[in-house]
Amino acid sequence: PNPAELLASNNMTELLKEMKEEFDMVIFDTPPVLAVADAQILANQVDGSILVVSSGKTDKEAAVKAKELLLKANAKVLGAVLNNRKMEEGSDYYYYYGV
């Protein structure tokens, strides 16, 4: 009933250890940082975190707050991904993407 409790458990620590031994890379897609504590709990147990923001949807203050929460959780923030950016026909990237 409490995902945060499960993520912070010894079983999760053991699972992460086994995954590191077995796989080259493991990616967790967590709920939004500002919505629940899951991302923060997991972020300090993994090698790095990438913040995903939605163009035109995520306001700057929310993105900054999410980054601050991750840093407070001792996360290693590797960078950010900007999703849903509208491409304009006149841009070079649009030309290559649209081909």
Rank of each mutant, 00 (worst) to 15 (best):
P1W: 09
P1R: 15
P3W: 09
E5C: 09
L6E: 08
N11K: 10
M12S: 10
T13D: 14
E14A: 14
L15E: 04
L16M: 14
L16W: 02
K17Y: 07
E18L: 13
M19I: 10
M19H: 12
K20D: 06
K20L: 04
E22V: 13
E22G: 12
F23R: 15
M25D: 03
M25R: 07
M25P: 01
V26H: 12
V26A: 12
I27M: 02
D29T: 04
D29G: 03
T30M: 10
T30D: 03
P32W: 00
V33G: 06
V33Q: 02
L34W: 01
L34R: 01
A35T: 04
A35E: 02
A37I: 11
D38A: 15
D38S: 11
D38V: 11
A39V: 02
A39P: 00
A39E: 06
Q40E: 06
Q40F: 12
L42S: 13
N44T: 11
Q45C: 04
V46K: 08
V46P: 04
V46D: 04
D47G: 09
D47E: 06
D47R: 03
G48D: 04
S49Y: 02
I50M: 08
I50T: 05
L51W: 06
V52W: 11
V53G: 09
S54C: 13
S54P: 08
S54H: 15
S54I: 08
S55T: 08
S55N: 08
S55C: 07
G56E: 08
K57R: 13
K57D: 12
K57A: 06
T58C: 04
D59F: 03
D59T: 09
K60A: 06
K60N: 13
E61V: 09
A62I: 14
A63C: 01
V64D: 13
V64P: 07
K65W: 10
K65M: 10
A66N: 13
E68G: 07
L70N: 00
L71G: 12
L71F: 03
L71W: 00
K72A: 07
A73T: 00
A73M: 02
N74A: 02
N74T: 02
K76Y: 07
V77H: 00
V77L: 01
V77R: 01
G79M: 01
A80I: 05
A80Y: 04
A80Q: 06
V81A: 02
V81Q: 01
V81L: 04
L82K: 01
L82Y: 00
L82W: 00
N83A: 03
N83Y: 03
N83G: 00
N84P: 08
R85L: 13
K86P: 13
M87A: 06
E88C: 09
E89V: 07
E89D: 06
G90P: 11
S91A: 02
D92F: 12
D92L: 13
Y93C: 03
Y94W: 07
Y95S: 08
Y95D: 09
Y95R: 11
Y96S: 08
Y97E: 05
Y97C: 13
G98D: 15
G98V: 05
